[in-house]
Design a protein around this nucleic acid. Structure first.
Lengths: 191, 191, 191, 191
DNA sequence: TATGAATGAGGGTTCATTCAT
DNA sequence: CATGAATGAACCCTCATTCAT
């Protein structure tokens, strides 16, 4: 019915799939549901994606790329390491809130199929950002000396936990401000 | 292969299910797979569990209870808030490492079926522990004043992210020691 | 084997199901059997019928409607009550013989599921026909006075027993002519 | 637990099975249900009956024999053919009402397994009774001449339809008195 | 004789994928 | 490009039957 360009159809599929996968998970979101939601026929889905796996993968990749871009963009031009960290955290949290589908990046359903390589690389890149910030902070004397790699891992895990909370229990979400404060100052009172 | 003791059978089923659910997720782990892995016939599975849902739920519940117990046990008798926090963190991480199946507690596949209530309650209890520790620390003058609830959320999310990393990318695991240090002292150098 | 016309498929399913249900009963006729007999794949069955119940119900409903129609048609235009009764009886018997599947209307397997409402209504309508005929006969002085409702029930039960005999023992089938004769004249010799 | 004699156990099984088969039909009444209802273990069922088929068959046979006996008993000693017919009809209907399980004699579910031979024989015997009565009536000049075999079939079918009505729609049951009257006198007014 | 845990074929149903149109 | 009827493997679950005790 829709003589629209293939690119339009593809976008409609991606949008619908994003919504359904993030709501129902990989297994419970059927190709038929995606077809109905996108207004494309079942057969049509297979014109743009070889199979369900590929569709899912494409979604993850696109989200990952977008987030990486956003991160890169917003971090350049900020020279103060503390500011950079604050910016980074609030950015990730804001993005996660706006794109709940990001949750599917965490999906473990398909780990054994995709081999995680895309995700691994993504998180490595993210960690690289943080590590850079921390190292810079230490060099400039703003941050105390610490195990850079470990610290970066911890920060990433905190953000990852936040994303998961989007689904599991939304009342567990914390504020970027408080998070930054804690990470920067710690709990202990400095005498 | 024949007529084993009932108790042994149930344990074998639970063990196999734990492994398969945590590796493949709820949907992709089939009852047939669990039957094969446990050396029990398909019909035998239904002698011990009414259906797949109940089996899954039983698993989650038992893990949740166990972890809650372990947490409670190890926290009592520690009066110093900083020590308590350190203990709490290292405990959770150690437990998560030993029981990779814990990941299924995070499963989002079944949220819309089980209503999450068990999980929500569990995480609320965990958060309660931390809040208690923080409050005590503030009262005793060891910790600086802060938003207790938010801080507790952040810590829980960090641990949650750690559990998730168990599956997604094991090289992202951080050490309890470094985590405690960061949370206690923060990044900023106190001049 | 491939992509036949949808309409043809549905008819083939109905025909096969009719045959199998009436031969084996609801429970023992499996969807796989019906699929094989109709030359349609198992999945294909569910393209036309939501589930086994619906398929069975559709069959019953269609038979019931058809027979009711046939009855109505052939009775209009006959004014003599005796002729009408004879016609009615021979019609029912002829129809039952041609459509042995009618037996499934009698099926008791599904009473507690379907609630029998369709059947009850059908037999009530049939009884209504007979009652009308009898009443008319009495009014016109052709029939003797009698308990109209009871008499109608008896006639319906006789026909119902005939249908059942189609399955149980075909040599128990009686001729419409003899049946009419008995009902009209009785056994006793009028002196 | 019950060290009762085997005969007591067998009776309990038969009673339970009779009730369950007549209520749920052959397929939907499971061996487990019968075991529970009879207070015998599942394995115990197979001590007395080779399998489900045999249990079912035994039930039918016993009911059939009992009814045949009752019929035989009550007919001997009645010399008037009209009285005999009336007696026969009221007897059958009363028995059917008291033993709703009789319905399973009509069960068509298992026709293809049992070959119907038992049932066929039973109904043949019943028909023999009626034929004898009719023939006697004709010979004695009480009944008018008629096709004996056909007439007997019709009467049997009427009773069979009555039994079926027990399940399908109880408000279709007729009275033995009205039935006898109709069969004896017919509908037509004798001028 | 009696038990009931264990088995596994088979039941109804779903769904990713294909292909004639 | 696009459609959707058709396919069939696989899923969850039931139940008649067996057998070690």
């Amino acid at each position: 019915m829709n003589k629209r360009s293939g690119i339009g159809s593809k976008k409609r599929i991606v949008d619908a799939a994003l919504k359904l996968f993030s709501e129902y998970g990989y297994s419970k979101a059927s190709m038929r549901m995606i077809a109905n939601a996108s207004g494309i026929s079942i057969g049509g889905l297979y014109l743009y994606f070889k199979n369900k796996d590929e569709l899912y993968l494409t979604l993850i990749k696109s989200r990952l790329d977008e987030l990486a871009d956003v991160t890169r963009q917003s971090l350049k031009g900020i020279s103060d390491p503390a500011d950079a960290l604050i910016k980074f955290i609030s950015l990730q949290l804001a993005y996660a809130k706006r794109h709940r589908e990001l949750i599917l990046v965490q999906g473990r359903e398909y780990g054994f199929v995709f081999g995680m390589s895309a995700k691994k690389k993504f998180f490595k890149v993210q960690r690289g950002f943080i590590e850079g910030v921390i190292r810079k902070g230490i060099r400039s004397g703003v941050f105390k000396k610490c195990n850079v790699k470990e610290t970066a891992k911890i920060i990433i895990c905190t953000l990852r936990g936040f994303i998961l909370s989007l689904i599991v229990e939304t009342d567990a979400l914390f504020s970027p401000h408080e998070c930054s404060k804690l990470l920067l100052n710690g709990l202990l009172k400095k005498e």
